[in-house]
Design a binder for these strands. Structure first.
Lengths: 340, 340
DNA sequence: TTGTACGCGTTATCAT
DNA sequence: ATGATAACGCGTACAA
C-alpha cells in the first residue's frame, strides 16, 4: 500500500528528508518556522514514522523492558504499575513484554534487546535455573525480580524474598498456635522453584517444633494443572477432606489457593477458623477482603519493584551497587487462623 | 558493539547472505547440508536476527496484535488466554501489547501496524468514542472486544454484551426479591462508557418496578480514583453507611467493588444477606469463591474471546460476516442476595 | 542450488 | 539551518 514515508513528507514540504527527521526528533538546529510547517503537514496527512526503521538506525533508545511471564498474575499487577511509574519518571520509555508460558524469557530478552536497543531489562517471574547461562548473551544490565534468583547462582542481580525462610516463619506461627497436623496445598513434584522452597520452609518449621513430617498431609498439584489458582486450591482441599486425614489447619502456598480451600471447607459445612484454620502466601489484596481475612505472608511488592528499578538504573549508570537484595516479608494475621 | 549480523554468519560459513537468509527462513530451495552447517554455526555463535530489519523488509507477517488497556485487569485474564490459544492455533503470531492508561490505543495500533506489518488487531477495553474516527487510519481489520462499541456508532466490528440490558436484568431480579432501596456503587460522573450504561440499566429496572430513583443512593467514585477496585468498593460502602441512608441492597458495578462492599459490611458488624444483600457485575471467578458467593452478571468471556478471533479471521479472509455480535450474559445467583 | 546487488524507511555524517 | 548520502541488517529479484 502507498504508505506515507518521510520522503513524501519532505517532498510535500519542499524540504529535505533530514529536515523532516530533525523536526520529528526535536533536534535543536532547525528553524522554528520550517519545523512548524513540517509538523502541520505531518498532522494533516497523518504521517506515522516506521518504528522498525527507526530502531534499525538508532544507536540507542533509553528504553527499559519488563518481561513478565504470566502477565495476568494478580501478584504482578501493582508491581507493573510501579515499574511503569518509576521508569517514565526517569524519562525512559517503558515496554511491558508478555512472555508466553512455553517461551524462554531469556530468548525473548536477547531478541528484544537487539530489536529495540534496550538500555535495561527486568525479569518478572519465570526464569528457571537451566536457562541461567543464556543470560550471558545479554549485553545490557538486567535485574531479576520476585523469583528466587539465588538458586540461579550466577551472580545475577536480583530482588526477592527468602521463600523458605518466610514460609518457615508462617508455619512456625501456625505451630505456635498449637497446630500439629497442618495440611499443605503444594506444587507438583517437578517444581524446583518457589514451590519447593516453601515446602522446605514448612518442613523446617515442623522440625523446630518436633513435629514429624507426614507426607500424607501434602496435597500435590497434578502435573500439568495450573498450581496457584483458586480452582486448584478448591480441588485439592476437596480431595483432602475425602481422604479423611486428620488435620486442624491448611497451609496453601498461595492466597488464591487459600481462597479455594476456604470455599471448599465452607461448601463442606465447616467453619473457619473454628473447625479449621487456613493460611496462605503472597499477601494479595483479596486476602484481606476475604471473610474471614486470610492469614498470609505479605511480600512487599511495591518496595521490591522500586528497589528493582533503582538497582537497574544504578547498574546502567555503573554506580557501585549491591546486586542482591532479599526483602523481609510480613506475617499478616487474619481471621482465618486461630489458637487451638 | 560488534553485534553478529547475517553478513558475518555468511562469511563464517563461506556462503552468501541469501543462503543464510534461506536457512533461517525455512526456504525450500536450499541444500540440506549447507542449511545444517549454517544452522549449526548460528547456534554456536548465538546469532539472533534483528527483528527491526526483518520487519522493515517484510511485506507482511501473519501477526495479530491484541491491545489491552489495563492488562492487569482480572477480567481480561482468561480472555487473553483464549486469544493466545486461538491465534497460535491458526498459525499466526500473537502479540500482546499493553496500552498505558494515558495512551491512545488507536495511536498505538496505527504505529504497531506499520512496525510489525500486522494482519489484524483486537482492542480489549478502553476506546472511548472521541477516538473513533482515528480508527480509519487502520488499514487492516480489527475487532473491538468487550467494550460497548455500539456507542462508537461508526460501523466498526465488535463483540460485546449489552451492558444496559444486563444491568437492568440484574436489578429487576433484585427488585423481584422485594428490594426497593438499592444503593449503587457507580463510576464517576464523567464516565460515559460502561459505567453510564449500567447505571441506565439500573434506572430502567427501577422504573419498571415503579420505584422512584433516588440520587442519594448512588455512590459515585471520586474523580481520579480507580473505579472498579475492591478498595473503592470498600470506601464507597463505608461512606454509604456513614450517611445513614436506608437501603436493603447494594448493587456494585463490578465484582471487585462488590467484594469491597461485603468486607465493609462485615467490618461494620453486618451480615450478608440477612442484613444487606450485595450484587456485583462481571462474573469473576473470585465472585463464586467468596463467602457468601456473590450474585452477579457473568459475561461469557471465553465465548466472547473466541467469537472475537473468529470474526477477525473472517474479516481477514474477506468472508461475509456479521460485524456486530452482542452476547447474552448470565444472571448468576449467589448467597449474597436474598428475598425480603 | 547459490551469490550479488538493491531497497525497505529512517537517522547520522558530512558538506554546504 | 539545510540537503545529499551513506549506513542500519535483512529479504529477495535476478543472474549465474
Amino acid at each position: 500500500m502507498g504508505q506515507l514515508t518521510i520522503k513524501e513528507v519532505a517532498k510535500l514540504c519542499g524540504v529535505g528528508v533530514s529536515t523532516v527527521s530533525r523536526a520529528i526528533n526535536d533536534h535543536p538546529d532547525i528553524n522554528e518556522d520550517t519545523k512548524k510547517k513540517i509538523m502541520d503537514t505531518i498532522r494533516e496527512y497523518n504521517y506515522i514514522p516506521n518504528n522498525s526503521a527507526r530502531n534499525l538506525k538508532r544507536i540507542d533508545s533509553n528504553t527499559i523492558a519488563v518481561l513478565a511471564k504470566g502477565i495476568t498474575n494478580p501478584f504482578f499487577a501493582d508491581m507493573i504499575q510501579v515499574f511503569e511509574r518509576e521508569i517514565t519518571k526517569k524519562r525512559y520509555s517503558f515496554i511491558l513484554q508478555h512472555v508466553e508460558e512455553f517461551e524462554d524469557e531469556v530468548d525473548v530478552a536477547v531478541q528484544l534487546e537487539k530489536e529495540k536497543r534496550l538500555k535495561g531489562i527486568v525479569f518478572l517471574g519465570g526464569l528457571s535455573s537451566h536457562t541461567a547461562d543464556k543470560l550471558e548473551q545479554l549485553t545490557v544490565p538486567y535485574v531479576i525480580s520476585t523469583v528466587n534468583a539465588a538458586a540461579l547462582g550466577n551472580g545475577a542481580a536480583y530482588v526477592t524474598v527468602d521463600d523458605e525462610r518466610e514460609s518457615c516463619r508462617l508455619v512456625e506461627y501456625l505451630c505456635s498456635c498449637g497446630h500439629r497436623r497442618i495440611a499443605v496445598l503444594a506444587a507438583g513434584r517437578q517444581d524446583a522453584s518457589i514451590g519447593a522452597q516453601r515446602l522446605n520452609g514448612y518442613r523446617r518449621a515442623l522440625e523446630q517444633y518436633g513435629i514429624v513430617y507426614d507426607d500424607a498431609l501434602v496435597m500435590r498439584t497434578k502435573d500439568g494443572q495450573p498450581t496457584y489458582s483458586m480452582e486448584n486450591g478448591y480441588a485439592l482441599t476437596k480431595e483432602l477432606l475425602n481422604l479423611g486425614k486428620e488435620f486442624t489447619c491448611i497451609y496453601a502456598m498461595s492466597d488464591s489457593m487459600a481462597i479455594g480451600a476456604c470455599k471448599a471447607l465452607f461448601d463442606a459445612g465447616k467453619r473457619i477458623p473454628e473447625d479449621y484454620s487456613v493460611a496462605g502466601y503472597d499477601g494479595l489484596t483479596v486476602a484481606q477482603y476475604y471473610e474471614p481475612s486470610i492469614t498470609t505472608i505479605r511480600q512487599p511488592r511495591r518496595e521490591m519493584a522500586e528497589a528493582t528499578i533503582q538497582m537497574l538504573f544504578d547498574l546502567i549508570r555503573k554506580k557501585p551497587v549491591r546486586r542482591q537484595r532479599i526483602f523481609e516479608a510480613e506475617l499478616v494475621l487474619g481471621g482465618s487462623t486461630r489458637k487451638l
